[in-house]
Design a protein around this nucleic acid. Sequence first.
DNA 1: AATGAATGAGCGTTCATTCAT
DNA 2: GATGAATGAACGCTCATTCAT
Lengths: 189, 189, 189, 189
Amino acid sequence: MARPLSEEKRGALLEAASDLIAQLGTGASTAKIAKAAGVSEGTLFTYFPSKDDLLNDLFVEIESELAQTMLAPYPMEASARDRLLIVWSRLIEWGLNHSTARKALLQLKVSDRVTAQSRQRCHAMFFDSRSMVEQCLAGHAAPERIAFYIDTILFELADITMNAIAAKPKEREVIQQAGFDLFWKGSAA
Amino acid sequence: MARPLSEEKRGALLEAASDLIAQLGTGASTAKIAKAAGVSEGTLFTYFPSKDDLLNDLFVEIESELAQTMLAPYPMEASARDRLLIVWSRLIEWGLNHSTARKALLQLKVSDRVTAQSRQRCHAMFFDSRSMVEQCLAGHAAPERIAFYIDTILFELADITMNAIAAKPKEREVIQQAGFDLFWKGSAA
Amino acid sequence: MARPLSEEKRGALLEAASDLIAQLGTGASTAKIAKAAGVSEGTLFTYFPSKDDLLNDLFVEIESELAQTMLAPYPMEASARDRLLIVWSRLIEWGLNHSTARKALLQLKVSDRVTAQSRQRCHAMFFDSRSMVEQCLAGHAAPERIAFYIDTILFELADITMNAIAAKPKEREVIQQAGFDLFWKGSAA
Amino acid sequence: MARPLSEEKRGALLEAASDLIAQLGTGASTAKIAKAAGVSEGTLFTYFPSKDDLLNDLFVEIESELAQTMLAPYPMEASARDRLLIVWSRLIEWGLNHSTARKALLQLKVSDRVTAQSRQRCHAMFFDSRSMVEQCLAGHAAPERIAFYIDTILFELADITMNAIAAKPKEREVIQQAGFDLFWKGSAA
DNA sequence: AATGAATGAGCGTTCATTCAT
DNA sequence: GATGAATGAACGCTCATTCAT
C-alpha cells in the first residue's frame, strides 16, 4: 500500500506557485516553486503531472476560494442595493486580503496555458452568486443588460477598483464607494 | 553611410513581436519573433539591444498609436456627452481594429519587464486627451471623483467592453452603448 | 536519497576541461567540455554552477595535486642542496607527467576569470613545502632575497625548464640539471 | 586609384587590440577593438583579413618593438658582465614602460591562434641581440649550456622579474638586481 | 577605402520533465 | 512516495565576418 499524497504538500506547492507567479509571471520555474514549497523538484510532478496542470489547478483553486467567500449568507431582508453592496465589499475585501493570489490570478487569466475548460469550470462555481446578483439587479437595471453587467462588468470593475486601492491604500473607503456608485448608478435603467 | 537601419525591418520586428506576444505572452522567444519578421536572430538585436528593450519599445509604440488616434480633432460645438461618446467610440474602434495589438498590450501591462519609465512616458502621451475628457466631465461628475473616473475607470472599462465585444462581435452596437451608458450615468454627480 | 552526485562524472568533467583548456584556452566551450566528459550539456551545470566555477575549481584541483606531490616526505638527513634537488625533480617530474594539466594551468593563471581568492587558496596549500625550501636556502642564500627566490623564481623557473624539456624531450636530463644549477648557484650569497 | 591604407588606422587598431587583449584576453571582440581604435567594425577587416591575422600581426609588432629596443648600440669597451647588465636593464625597462603590451604578449604567447610561423619570425628578429649575448657569456658560462641560457632562460627570467616588480614597484632596484645576479651567477661555469 | 547592418553559428545557462535510488 | 541528478531543447545574446551603400 503506497504512501498517500499529502494534502499539506499539495497546498504548499499551490501557495508557493501563487507567490512566485504573482512575482515573476507564469515563467516562474517549477524548480523555484518546489524549493519555495519545501519539497524536491521531482515531488512537484507527483502532485501535478505537468506545469500546465499546476497552472490550471492553481487558477481553479484561487477562483474557488473567491467563490466560497462570495457564497457566505446574505441578509435576505436587506434592500437590493444593500445586498449588492455586500457583494461588492466582499469582493474588494477578498482582493485586498489576498493580494498575491489576485496578482497570480491576473497572470493566469492572461496566459493561454490556462485552458478554456478551467475557465468554464470557474465560471460555473459562481452560479449561485450570479443568481443572487441577478435578483438584486432585477428591478433596477434594464433586463436585457443584466447579463452584461454581471458577466462582464461587475468582477472586472471590482478588479480595477482594487488596483486603484492598492495604489492609494489610504483612500480605500472613498475609492471603494466610488466604484460601487459607478456600478449601481451606471446600471440603473 | 553603410546600409541604413531599415524602418521596414524595425516595423516588421515590432509587428511580429506584437503578434507572438499576443499569442504566447512575453515569453515568446526572440528567435520566433525574428523568424516571423523575416530577419535573422542576430538582426533583432541590432534594432533592439535586448529583449526588454523590444518589449518596452513595443509597449510605447502601441500606446503611442492609440494616443495618436485619440488626438484626432473633436467637434467643439458638440455637447460634453457627445464628445465623450466620440472618445469612447474611438477607443472601442481602435481596440477592435487592432485586436492583436490590444492583446499584446494586455500581456505587456501585466509584465514587470515593462518599466515604470515606459509606463510614465505613455501616460504623458495622453495628456491632451485627458484634459479634453476632464472638460467633458466638468459639469457632469462630482469634481473630487473626476480623476478616478479618468485615470482608473475609463480606459479599463473600455478594455472590458472590448473583451465583451470580442466574445460576441454581433452584439457590438449594443455592448458598446451599454458600456458607455454605464460610464456616463455611473459618473453623474 | 535520489541519485548521488557522481565523483566519477565530476572527475571526467574536470579532466575534459583540463584537456580542452590546455588545447583551446579558457575559451573552450562548456558544450565541448561536457561532450568530451561524456555527459550532457546540462549536467555540467549540476556539478559546477557556472563556467567560472568550473575554471576556478579546476585551477584549485590541479594546484592541489601538485601541492600533494610536493608534500611527500623528504629524507631529512640529506644536505640542503640535495633536498632542494628533490623538490626540483618532483616539480619537473610532475610537470612532465601532467603536461596537459600544466598547459591548462598556464591558461588559467593568465585568465582573470580565476579569482584572487582561488589563487590565495592555492598559495596557502604550498605553505609546508615553502617552509621546507626556506630551510634549504637558509644557510645558502642572502636572507633578504630568500622570499624572492621562493615566491617568484622557483616555480616559474621550473615552468620554463619544463617548457624547454617539452621542446626537446631527449635532453631532459641535461636541461633539468642546468635549470637546477642555475637556481642553486644563482641564489648563493 | 583607390585610397591607400592608412598607417595611422592600422596603428590605432593594433594599439586598441593590445589594450583590450591585455585586459580581456584574446577573446576581446573585433567590434570592441574597432570601436576603441575609432574605426568601424568593417574597417578592421580591410587592415587585417581575419582576427587571427590581427592577433599574429600584433604579436609580431610587439616583439618587433622589443627587438628594436634591444638593438640600440652597446658600449663595446664595457665588460661582458656590464654589457649583459645593459641587456637586462633594457629588457626590464621596456617591460615596465610597456606594461599593457607585455600583458597582451603574455596572452598571445599562450594562445594557439598565434602560429608557429609568427613565433619563428620573432625569434629571428632577435638574432643580433642573441649573438651579442652569446659573446657576453662566451668566457663565463659552460659552452654547451649557452644556448639554454639565452633561448630559454634570459627572456623568461626577465618576464618573471618584471612581474615581481609590477607587484612591488617600490622595490624595483632591489628586485631587478636580484634577478640579474641570479642569472649571472647561476650561469657561471 | 570606409561604414555598419546583416548573418547564423555558437555561447553560457535555464528549464520541464524523467527516472535511478 | 520522495528525492534530486540527468537530460537536451530552448533561451537571450555575442561574435567574426560579409557586403550593400
